[in-house]
Simulated assay, not measured.
Amino acid sequence: MGNNMRGKRQFKRSFYKLADSPYMFIFPYAALFSLLIVLPVAVAIGLSFTYFNTVQAPKFVGFQNYIDLFTGDTIFLQHAISNTLFYAVLVGPIGYMLAFFLAWMLSQVPHRIRTIYTVIIYSPSVTGSIMVTVVWKVLFSGDRTGYLNYWLMKMDIIQEPLQWLKSPELLVPIMIFIALWGSMGVGFLAMLAGLLNIDKTMYEAAYIDGIRNRWQEIFYITIPSMKPQMLFGAVMAIIGTFNASGVAATLSGGSPPPQYAGWMIVDHANDFGFTRFEMGYASAVTVVLLYIVILFNKISYKLFGEHE
């Protein structure tokens, strides 16, 4: 009986000691991160060295998928990579700066009005796919009943309807416009939260020390005080732009879109993975995209990360 009681007490002490361990606090995050991030990435990297048609067992082919990708896949080299980089380099920085500018403007207005404007600005990022299907396709419709064509013809700016969504030269600018319209997502909210939590006494001290205008205030006080939020916004902008897919096909009504205009790396991976069922090759495409995203994230950490 005494041994049982002693064993129970030792078990309780061990349990409480384990419960107080800091590893128990990070275990749920570590488990979910491993299950949802590390494992899928490891599986994708492993499949990228195989031929896998989703029916038969994966067959190891070494680096053949990567060789084919960079030597024989002209659509990937001429369209997917260039379109994705152009889209990301243009939409990412512009959307990022626009998010900061709008968040800074909202931080200057009273709370009740700020809440209303925040909901209005944030809502397009939530309803993005619905807006593409319902609003933008009707606005840019290529017939005379399309809103934009109707008003341009009524004002005698154009004489015939323009095929906005069928022309490769017009489709990409429309994609960029729509992306910027819906780019005020969680990064924008993070920046707004960072701006609202800056100690106001820092601005008073800065003006005593010699700051004379709002531009100096932003560059010397505001941005250094909210570097974590700026970094988070940059990472979310990078992930969002490089993860873009299906917009051109949805707008143009066909996949692939005309002359592969707006064809992204994710579109290429989805095409091989879920249309042609070449999962090994699609995995190689996603691994290349992963390395590109990591490279751009490293640049963001250089700019906004803590170097001390």
Rank of each mutant, 00 (worst) to 15 (best):
168 P>W: 05
168 P>E: 05
169 E>F: 11
170 L>K: 09
171 L>V: 10
172 V>D: 03
174 I>Y: 00
176 I>F: 13
176 I>P: 11
180 L>T: 13
180 L>C: 12
181 W>T: 07
182 G>P: 03
183 S>L: 11
187 G>M: 05
189 L>M: 11
190 A>T: 01
191 M>W: 04
194 G>C: 02
195 L>K: 01
196 L>M: 15
196 L>S: 08
198 I>M: 02
199 D>K: 09
200 K>W: 04
201 T>L: 09
203 Y>E: 11
203 Y>I: 04
203 Y>A: 01
205 A>F: 03
207 Y>A: 01
207 Y>Q: 04
207 Y>T: 00
207 Y>W: 04
209 D>N: 06
209 D>Y: 02
209 D>Q: 03
212 R>I: 13
216 Q>K: 09
217 E>R: 06
218 I>D: 08
219 F>W: 14
219 F>V: 12
220 Y>K: 12
221 I>P: 10
222 T>G: 04
223 I>D: 01
223 I>S: 05
223 I>M: 15
224 P>E: 14
226 M>H: 08
226 M>S: 13
226 M>K: 05
229 Q>R: 01
229 Q>W: 03
229 Q>L: 02
230 M>N: 05
230 M>K: 04
231 L>Y: 14
231 L>W: 10
231 L>A: 06
232 F>Y: 12
232 F>T: 12
232 F>G: 08
233 G>H: 06
234 A>G: 06
234 A>S: 15
235 V>W: 05
236 M>L: 15
240 G>N: 08
240 G>C: 00
240 G>T: 03
241 T>R: 10
241 T>D: 12
242 F>S: 07
244 A>H: 05
245 S>W: 13
247 V>W: 10
248 A>D: 08
248 A>C: 07
248 A>R: 08
249 A>P: 13
